[in-house]
Nucleic acid binder design. Structure first.
Length: 499
RNA sequence: GGGCGGGUGGCGAAGAGGCUAACGCUGCGGUCUGCAAAACCGCCAUUCACCGGUUCAAAUCCGGUCCCGCCCUCCA
């Protein structure tokens, strides 16, 4: 597999330290709010990468941290009159709710800064001992000039950077580019005791320390959003390599941004959309598909139309799975041999799917091959005989492959219903009961050739985001938007009353 | 000012020297259907921002021009 390594700026063959293992670390969110769509992209991208590496047979150790000690958390806690750590803990819980809906696997470990303070203090002390850091009034700074390779990740030279001169000048620092490893606590802020007095870690040191702690001095892949390249990841490299003398991460992978009207979606611009709000309009599996249908390094523009398109596209794939189930009707022809020609086209698609992902994780291309497979299966369903065991085998095994490959990207396991109803089981079951009644009325109307009445029901449900499709086996429903149960019940009563 | 990435059909988006420029959405024609929907079959870029160059061969390489985004400051 080849991946684009930000360190070096080109695609490189992925050679892991241990041929059968991948150690990867992904920068997780700072937990002071619900995650927004921009936060969700790296989660989905790197979760998918992890799944693919596992599919290829690697034993993957996946670490994703939570930043639970941070200026913004402290500020938010002060605003809400809450304890910073408790506030962070609350948003970690909320994070998992969102991540689960998106079908993101749990990391091997989700370390938190607050639980690694002694490790961090050790690392800061070690850097001071080695002359890479110095203490001033309870703050500790990393001496950037002591690390000659500083800038190798982001591709900038020290001297050029200072030309921009937008760095805040702090007379106490040896060099304006030096950054904080440890910050002295101000009154009212949370703190831990350290050799430099009471304080807390700077932002960058946590990732270096936790990565090293769980994965060793050198890891295979370090991932995150491209806005972390500088300064965050540049600083991580400086700290870690200055301390251990080992290359910190062999491969650095960065995803592109989500944009809104071509502008970066960010908290500071205020143009962000909380995942949770999006999930009231679109199912989580659609959001996941949307995030993975474009190559991870490309920018991805967001608006409802794009999600609507993703909904239709993913629906096409999932529809094939449903149609295949209907075609097979419980038959499970797994073991029947396929005709050579069909065997070969399935094998080809499986191979091309992997080839696409092997080329810098090209999910867009890989998904294109899924659509080819989908069309192939559909055409056999359309022309095949459900009673013919060869046809069953083609459709059944094709669908199995589609499901398996889709699962490599986590496409078929996410929440399928809308965020505002999925947790309320009562709503779903009563929805189904109501729909049964509608379908029964409509079926009777069709038998009576009362097509006006039948169409009235179909049109009404369509307006509620529920699509009815007639088949030889009866009608089936598809949900396209969050239905309004109250309106459904009212209409049902009206129709029943009208009899 | 410095660094990085990009401009491909109506839209989204792959392709990075040589097969008919993928795939999805939209649109159009056909099959199926009570009518639809879904599904299937077929059609929809002689052309890849612009201008030069290299090459037997360029959307892909080189030079220049014009636009756009991001990073250099907390941000995924």
């Amino acid at each position: 597999m080849r991946v684009y390594n930000t360190l070096g700026g080109r695609k490189e063959e992925l050679r892991t330290l241990n041929p059968h293992k991948v150690n990867m670390y992904v920068c997780g969110p700072t937990v002071y709010n619900f995650i927004h769509l921009g936060n969700a992209r790296p989660l989905v991208v790197f979760d998918s990468l992890r799944r693919y590496l596992e599919y290829k047979g690697y034993d993957v150790t996946y670490i994703q941290n939570f930043t639970d000690v941070d200026d913004k958390i402290i500020r938010k806690a002060q605003e809400e009159n809450d304890d910073p750590l408790r506030l962070a803990e609350r948003y970690i819980g909320e994070y998992f709710i969102d991540a689960d809906r998106l079908n993101i696997k749990r990391a091997s470990v989700h370390p938190q800064v607050s639980q690694h303070i002694p490790d961090i203090i050790d690392a800061v002390g070690g850097l001071i001992d080695k002359g890479h850091a110095y203490e001033v009034d309870g703050d500790v700074y990393f001496r950037v000039r002591s690390f000659p390779e500083y800038g190798k990740l982001s591709g900038r030279a020290m001297d050029e950077m200072l030309a921009g001169a937008r760095v805040e000048v702090d007379e106490r620092k040896d060099d304006p580019a030096d950054f904080a490893l440890w910050k002295a606590a101000k009154p009212g802020e949370p703190y831990w005791d350290s050799p430099w007095g009471q304080g807390r870690p700077g932002w960058h040191i946590e990732c270096s320390v936790m990565s090293t702690r769980y994965l060793g001095d050198s890891i295979d892949i370090h991932g995150g959003g491209s806005d972390l390249i500088f300064p965050h990841h540049e600083n991580e490299i400086a700290q870690a390599e200055a301390l251990t003398g080992q290359p910190f991460s062999r491969y650095w992978m960065h995803n592109g941004f989500i944009t809104v009207n071509k502008e970066k979606m960010s908290k500071s611009l205020g143009n962000f959309f909380l995942l949770r709000d999006i999930l009231t309009k679109f199912p989580a599996d659609v959001v996941r598909f949307y995030l993975i249908a474009t190559h991870y390094r490309s920018p991805l523009d967001f608006d409802d139309g794009k999600l609507e398109e993703a909904r239709k596209a993913l629906g096409r794939l999932k529809n094939t799975l449903l149609l295949a189930d209907e075609f097979l009707r419980g038959n499970n022809p797994d073991t029947t041999d396929l005709p050579e020609e069909n065997r070969r086209s399935f094998d080809n698609i499986t191979e091309q799917f992997a080839e696409a992902l092997d080329d810098d994780f090209n999910t867009a291309l890989a998904i294109a091959h899924l659509f080819e497979l989908s069309r192939l299966i559909n055409s056999h369903i359309a022309s095949g005989d459900p009673g013919n065991s060869i046809h069953q085998a083609i459709v059944g095994q094709g669908a199995d492959i589609l499901r398996r490959l889709g699962d490599v990207l986590g496409l078929f396991g996410g929440a399928t219903v809308f965020g505002n109803v999925e947790s309320e089981d009562d709503d779903i079951s009563s929805l189904e009961v109501v729909l049964e009644s509608f379908l029964a009325i409509r079926q009777q109307a069709r038998q009576d050739k009362d097509y006006a009445r039948a169409d009235e029901i179909r049109n009404f449900l369509s307006g509620q985001g529920i699509r009815i499709e007639d088949t030889s086996e009866g009608a089936r429903c598809r949900y396209e938007a969050p239905p309004d149960l109250t309106a459904l019940n009212a209409k049902l009563e009206e129709m029943q009353g009208g009899r």
